[in-house]
Simulated scan of single mutants.
Amino acid sequence: MFSELQTEIEARYDIHFDDLSLLEEALTQANYINEHPNYHGRDYQRLEFLGDAIMQQSSAVYLFKRYPDWDEGRLTELRILMVQTRSFAALSRELHLDHYVQLGHGEEISGARNRDSLLEDLWEAFIGALYLDQGQDAVMNLLEQVFFSKIDTGFYDRFVDYKSKLQELLQKNGTVDINYQKISEEQIENNEQIFTVAVQLNGKQLAVGEGKSTKDAEKVAARRAYKDLTMDK
């Protein structure tokens, strides 16, 4: 099974494990071992510990070098946004780690294979295993492909509550009237709809957003308004 994953990640990301037992350890949950008394391998928890530290350090170094003009606050904010549960869970799914993890029967039935908290652990354990097997250069090569490259795509924006951030920004000097108003609702192909919403401050329009629901459109409008207001700060 793990040789199949090895073949897949080697073809997609040019990553090769010399020691497949590390890859197996990274994808084995404790409950699986408890249910298989004759299994002699370890669960992923030690590798998860290592991978967590590696992700924190690698992200900090990358952002420090990429944004030489940013202060500590901005660097920390982006790092926290990147190094978090939903981000790591998405990366686990991208590498298909969820397909290969060895789970206990009860965990399988409860849907753990799709649980973000488990997938976060798997990503960190995988990074820990890769570091031990191939070193930091191999880790950075993978992160360049699947992690750091997402900064410019808006991938991490989906994890930000921009409506709350915008409200906090606009109300820092007192109460103001923040309103989201639907401008239009357009039918497109496949019977889908696109909603357009404007966010207003005391009746003045700040930004407009589009989405497949009014809620999604409001999020886009809030993100655009927040970024416009903080662009030079």
Rank of each mutant, 00 (worst) to 15 (best):
Q6E: 13
T7P: 02
A11H: 13
D14I: 13
H16Q: 14
D18K: 15
L20I: 11
E24K: 08
E25I: 00
L27R: 03
E35G: 10
H36Q: 14
Y39H: 12
L47W: 01
E48W: 02
E48A: 09
F49S: 12
L50R: 06
A53E: 10
A53H: 08
Q56E: 14
Q57R: 15
S58Q: 06
A60V: 05
F64E: 15
R66I: 03
P68L: 12
D69A: 13
R74L: 12
L75V: 04
L81E: 09
F88K: 11
S92F: 03
L97A: 04
D98C: 03
D98F: 06
Y100Q: 05
E107M: 11
S110W: 03
D121T: 03
F126R: 00
G128D: 01
A129L: 01
A129H: 00
A138P: 02
N141I: 05
L142W: 02
F147T: 00
F147Q: 00
T153N: 07
R158I: 02
R158H: 12
F159L: 08
D161K: 08
K163T: 11
S164W: 00
S164N: 13
L166K: 02
E168V: 11
L169V: 02
Q171S: 07
Q181D: 07
K182A: 15
K182H: 03
E186N: 14
Q187V: 11
Q187H: 10
N190F: 14
V197T: 09
L201C: 10
Q205F: 00
A217E: 02
K219E: 14
V220L: 09
A225G: 01
K227D: 06
L229W: 02
D232F: 15
K233W: 14
